[in-house]
Design a protein around this nucleic acid. Structure first.
Lengths: 354, 354
DNA sequence: CTGTTAGCGCTTTCAT
DNA sequence: ATGAAAGCGCTAACAG
C-alpha cells in the first residue's frame, strides 16, 4: 500500500485551474468565479481533500494575538498541566507569528478573577482561551467579549449562557457521579460519607465544585438514600490551618467511612489519613497530580478520577489557532475522557497525547 | 509571550557555518570537520534545538518499504484499532515516499502465523512492525530478522528474548492483576471465579493470555487464596458453538459469582449473561470494542480494561518512520496506559490521541 | 569538507 | 478573476 496524497497542484490540474484558485476555494476567500469554485469544490469533495495543516502553518503570514486567562498554578498541578498543553500547541505552531499573553487569577478569590477579567478587556487580541472558575463573573465577561466580537474557548468548565467558539473538558456532573459510584463500591456503607470542599473568598463557589457535588449527591440519593453526608472544609492557601481543620473534623465525626474531594486537593485529606493511620477511611479524589499519585500508591487514596488536563489545554489552544489561521470551524462541545486511576495503573498513566 | 523558534539558518549564523553544515550535524552525517561539528553542536545543545519533524518529512527524499504483520481483524476490533493507528501515522507522513505491505495471520492458528512469517522473510524491506501472538514462533522469526539486519517494532506484546527497535503496549501481567482487583472488588467473594479462554489451533496459547492469567492468578493467591477458580472455553471462530459451551459451563458450575476474559471477547460471555438474565455474575473484560461497550452500558459487563490500541499502532509505526527517515533512536520499552472503563465513563473514552 | 541551491506542499503577493 | 512566482523551514544534491 502506498499513500501518496493529492496535492493542491494536482487538484488544480484536475479542476483545470491554477493552484492559487484552489487555495482561494479552500479558504473561502473571495475573487473566485462561481464556476471555478464549483469545479474545484467538486474535486475536493471527491477526493476528500484535507490539507496538511503542519505545512500550512509555515506559509501563513497572518500574525495573531491571543490572551489566556487561567487560575495561577504551581508546577505539576492541574492548571499547570493545562497550561503545558497550551504551550505544546504553541510550540507546534512556532513557525507562525503568534503572540500570547498569559493572565492568571486566584481561583479561590472571586475578586482576583474579576480584576483579571477587567484587565483582559483592555488588551487588543484576536481570541481568548479561558479556564473559568466563577460562573456568574465569567458569564458577564464573555457577554462583553461577544459585544467586542472576540471569540473565546473554554477549557475545563463549560459556563452556562455563554457562547464559546469551543469547549474542551469533562462532563462535570458525571465526574461527581463516578466518584460516588467508586466510593460506595469500596467503603463500608453503614458509615457516613464526608465531602471536603475549599473555603473561598467572595461568596461564590466554584462552578465545577457545585456541579460535581450535584452529580455526587444525586447518585447517593438514587442508590444509597440512607447514607449520611457530612461536609468538611480545608483552606487552599493555608496547609497548616487545613491540617487542623481536617483533624478536628474527623475527631468530631467518628463514623466517617469514606470521603470525597472534587478538585485536585485530595492529598490534603490523604495526608491526614496517613498521619492518623486511618486506613479504614476510603478516599476518592480528582486529578493525577504528583502528591495525589503518591498517596494513591501508598494506599491512602483508593481512586483518582483524572481529566487529561494536558489534552484539554492542547486542543483548546490548537482549536483557536486553527480557527484564526485557517478559519477551521470546530465542534462546540468536546467532552474529554474521564480516567479512573488505581494504584496499579497510575504508573502508566500518560497525561499528554503526544 | 512569543515563541519564535530558531531555525537552521539562524543556528548556522550563530555557529558561523552554513545551513548545510548544520543539517549534516543534525543528522550525524559524515563530511563535517570536528571543529565545525563542535561549534554547531554547542549551539544546538544551548538552545535545545528540536527540528520541526512535520516539515522535515516534506524535504526527505528517501523511500522506504515497511512490512506490518498483524492478526487479521474485523472492523472495530482490537487489532483493527491498532491498524487504524498505523494508518493514521502513515497518513501523517504521506508527503514522504513510503510503501507498506500489510500481512495478516489468524491469531488463533499457530500454523497460519508461521506461514505468514515465512512469507515475510522473502519480502525486501527496511523494517517491520509486528503484532505477535505466539511467543516461540515469534522469537524464531525475529532471530532471523536480526541476522538479516532488519529492525522491527512490537505492538501489544513484548516477546521475551527478542531485541526490537521498540515496543509499544501495556504491561501485560498488570492487566491480569487489575482485572483481578476489579473483579474481586465487586463480586460475592464466597463464590467461584471463572476464567474464560479461547480454544486455539496448534498447541501454543497466546503469550498475552498466559501472562495476563499469571497476573490474575497471582493477585488471587496473594489476596484471596481461598477462592476457587474454574476454567471455561469459547471458540473464537464459531459463535454458535461458543454459546453452547458457555451455557453448559454455567449449568455445570452453579456457584460462579464472577468471570474474567483476557482478550476482547468478553461479549461472548456477557451475551450469555444477558440472555440467561444472570445479573448476579460479575464480569470483567478487556478492550473498548463496540460489542463490549454495549454490554458494559447494559450492565452485563462491570469493568472493561482498555489498552489504547490506536495509540499503540500510531506510535509503533511513527517510531519506525522516524527511525528510518531521521535516524531517531526511540526508547526500547514504552508501556502504554491501561484504562479502566465503567458504564459512566465509556461514552467519553476516546481511543485515539489525535 | 563546506557553501549554495533547488525543491518539498502550501500560502500569499503581484501582475495580468 | 486568475495564474505565476516568491517564500516559509527543511533536506539533499551539486559545485567547489
Amino acid at each position: 500500500m502506498t499513500t501518496k496524497r493529492l496535492r493542491i497542484k494536482d487538484i488544480a490540474i484536475i479542476a483545470g485551474v491554477s493552484a492559487g484558485t484552489v487555495d482561494r476555494v479552500l479558504h473561502n476567500r473571495s475573487d473566485v468565479s462561481a464556476e471555478s469554485r464549483k469545479k474545484v469544490q467538486a474535486v475536493l469533495d471527491e477526493i476528500e481533500y484535507r490539507p496538511n495543516l503542519h505545512l500550512s502553518t509555515i506559509g501563513v503570514k497572518k500574525r495573531c494575538q491571543i490572551v489566556t486567562i487561567l487560575p495561577s498554578s504551581t508546577k505539576g498541578s492541574y492548571w499547570w498541566q493545562i497550561e503545558s498543553g497550551i504551550k505544546r500547541a504553541l510550540y507546534e505552531f512556532s513557525s507562525s507569528n503568534i503572540k500570547v499573553r498569559f493572565l492568571h487569577y486566584d481561583q479561590f478569590d472571586l475578586f482576583s478573577c474579576r480584576d483579571v477579567y477587567n484587565a483582559a478587556l483592555d488588551i487588543k487580541c484576536d481570541a481568548m482561551l479561558i479556564g473559568p472558575t466563577f460562573s456568574d463573573e465569567t458569564m458577564l465577561f464573555t457577554s462583553r467579549l461577544a459585544s467586542k466580537d472576540i471569540p473565546y474557548v473554554f477549557v475545563d468548565t463549560l459556563i452556562a449562557d455563554s457562547y464559546p467558539l469551543s469547549f474542551f473538558g469533562p462532563h462535570t456532573s458525571l465526574i461527581g457521579r463516578i466518584e460516588a459510584k467508586l466510593l460506595m463500591g469500596i467503603m463500608d456503607r453503614t458509615k457516613d460519607v464526608a465531602i471536603f470542599q475549599a473555603m473561598r473568598i467572595g461568596n461564590e463557589s466554584s462552578s465545577q465544585t457545585i456541579t460535581r457535588k450535584f452529580g455526587f449527591e444525586n447518585y447517593l440519593k438514587e442508590f444509597h438514600p440512607g447514607t449520611k453526608v457530612l461536609y468538611g472544609y480545608y483552606y487552599n492557601s493555608d496547609e497548616e490551618k487545613s491540617k487542623r481543620e481536617v483533624e478536628s473534623f474527623f475527631e468530631q465525626n467518628g463514623n466517617v467511612g469514606g470521603a470525597v474531594v472534587f478538585n485536585s486537593r485530595a492529598y490534603m485529606i490523604s495526608g491526614y489519613l496517613r498521619r492518623a493511620k486511618r486506613g479504614d477511611v476510603a478516599l476518592v479524589g480528582c486529578g493525577a497530580i504528583e502528591r495525589n499519585i503518591a498517596d494513591l500508591k501508598r494506599g491512602y487514596i483508593s481512586y483518582l478520577v483524572a481529566e487529561r488536563p494536558e489534552r484539554q489545554g492542547y486542543w483548546g489552544f490548537k482549536t483557536i489557532l486553527e480557527y484564526l489561521l485557517f478559519h477551521k470551524q470546530p465542534p462546540t462541545i468536546n467532552y474529554t475522557p474521564i480516567d479512573i486511576l488505581i494504584k496499579e495503573n497510575a504508573d502508566f498513566y500518560i497525561n499528554e497525547l503526544g
